[in-house]
Amino acid sequence: MGKQFDALSDAHRSFIEAQHMFFCGTAAAEGRVNISPKGMDSLRVLGPNRIIWLNMTGSGNETAGHLAETPRMTLMWCSFDRRPQILRTYGTARTLHRDAADWDEMLGHFGDRLGARQIYELRIDLVQTSCGYSIPFMEFTGDRDTLTRWNEDKGEAAIRDYWDTRNRKTIDGLPTGIDANLG
């Protein structure tokens, strides 16, 4: 059933690109483990051992705080349609804030989006597939535009204020490094 690989194959990449969402898991040395669903065409596979994903403004900022202390990350995709499969990538990740030397280059993979908060780069050291036989069938009916509209309604200055007041620390009090975006 489950298989492990050193890198993503073309078949793995095709599977990833066919999914409408993924999940990100991170944890600091102590405190809560965070698992977040992600969507909005925010992920790019740049090679067999490299993935980047664009993190939009949200109510929490756990991933950035966790990676500042412990740079482990797991990404997971699961199929909700005909093909039962789960795929996980494990590795070491870094957070790119807007002041990173390669921010513009990395953002170019997505286009500049209002509310873009961080970009995460995962260097993969293990890929694992498993059956997904218990995953229910679900039908994709479309992407939500709620976050895009929220960002447009707020505007850039209010988004930065939101980062300043709501995204500086994780729920366990770890700093997220968001001040790099505020300067």
Rank of each mutant, 00 (worst) to 15 (best):
121 E>C: 12
114 L>T: 06
63 T>G: 00
131 C>F: 02
118 Q>G: 06
73 M>Q: 07
49 N>P: 09
146 T>N: 15
130 S>A: 14
4 Q>Y: 06
68 A>I: 05
112 D>N: 15
3 K>F: 09
85 Q>E: 07
69 E>R: 04
35 I>V: 15
62 E>G: 03
126 L>G: 03
21 M>I: 07
110 F>S: 13
158 A>D: 14
89 T>N: 11
146 T>S: 15
148 T>E: 15
27 A>N: 07
181 N>I: 01
136 P>M: 02
39 G>E: 01
177 G>T: 01
114 L>H: 08
90 Y>P: 14
116 A>Q: 07
107 L>C: 14
151 N>Y: 08
119 I>K: 01
170 T>S: 01
54 L>M: 10
20 H>D: 09
20 H>S: 11
35 I>N: 12
12 H>E: 10
66 H>T: 01
179 D>Q: 11
74 T>C: 13
16 I>W: 02
116 A>Y: 07
173 G>F: 00
9 S>D: 05
39 G>D: 08
147 L>E: 10
148 T>I: 13
86 I>W: 01
62 E>Q: 04
77 W>S: 05
87 L>M: 06
56 M>V: 08
55 N>R: 01
130 S>D: 12
149 R>K: 08
91 G>N: 04
164 D>Q: 15
92 T>N: 13
126 L>R: 14
137 F>D: 10
134 S>M: 09
94 R>W: 04
106 M>K: 12
104 D>I: 07
153 D>R: 10
140 F>T: 08
106 M>Q: 14
170 T>V: 06
98 R>W: 11
119 I>G: 03
104 D>Y: 09
31 G>R: 01
92 T>G: 12
140 F>S: 05
159 I>P: 14
103 W>I: 03
120 Y>P: 03
68 A>E: 09
149 R>C: 08
149 R>N: 04
151 N>T: 09
12 H>Q: 07
28 A>F: 02
61 N>L: 02
91 G>D: 09
62 E>K: 00
142 G>M: 09
109 H>W: 11
25 G>F: 00
128 Q>Y: 14
59 S>E: 11
115 G>W: 07
9 S>W: 01
145 D>Y: 05
66 H>I: 03
31 G>T: 02
66 H>N: 11
47 G>D: 11
28 A>M: 04
107 L>G: 08
98 R>N: 10
113 R>K: 11
38 K>T: 08
13 R>Q: 09
144 R>V: 15
103 W>S: 09
132 G>I: 05
98 R>T: 06
20 H>Q: 12
183 G>E: 14
18 A>Y: 00
6 D>H: 05
1 M>K: 12
53 W>S: 10
76 M>C: 11
32 R>H: 15
155 G>Y: 02
140 F>A: 09
18 A>W: 00
129 T>R: 06
78 C>N: 13
175 P>V: 13
97 H>G: 09
51 I>H: 02
159 I>M: 03
183 G>Y: 07
45 V>K: 02
99 D>N: 06
18 A>F: 02
154 K>R: 08
45 V>L: 04
92 T>Y: 11
64 A>V: 01
